[in-house]
Amino acid sequence: MHRVQENITVQDLKQGSDLLFKSIYEENRSKFLNFAKKYNLSQDDNIDVYQDAYIIFYNNVMQGKVTEFTSSISTYLFSIGKYLIFDKMKKNNKTINPDFDLSIVREKEALVDPALELEQQELTTEQILLKKYFVTLGKKCQELLTLFYYRGFTIKDIIEAGDYTSENVVKSAKSRCMKTLKERINAQN
């Protein structure tokens, strides 16, 4: 396979290309699964861990927690993956071998980048309701709000990315989307 990841920057990834997202996933998958074998989790568990690690990595990039790669993408994935494996093993009370003390190895500080956010918070009841109505918004509204709140695009970035002509147009579109969202929630509850 064509090797894609060596020269990838945070900005490349933030463009949100599906092709790049897939290439990075596939390029690191076998390496990661090979590495994870030694921890005696099942293959399905290892795939789950790899996917979780990949999503955590991707979210951190998208949300501006990683502003520049200080190591290769593989290093990030392995580092997060290791953290998740140990976390899983601790929860399962599983040991690698008798002389291996899990408590000493996995602290967040040992990560490739301590600023990485690893836990996904459970949604509150209010947020679950909000999510229910967010997905009923039109595609354009969902995209606009996602660009702003998830991908950290500024209004200028949003204009550059496409469908909007001025700052005021973006601002009023964003306000309208939020107003619709509030109205839908209020109408149903």
Partner: peptide
């Protein structure tokens, strides 16, 4: 608080989309 919640919700929605994509890759 509304916008803060919205931010979390959008993140959760994106995670759902990403998970579905990864399932598809597998």
């Amino acid at each position: 608080l509304f916008e803060q919640n919205l931010k979390e919700v959008i993140k959760s929605n994106e995670i759902d989309i990403l998970k579905a994509k990864l399932k598809g890759f597998e």
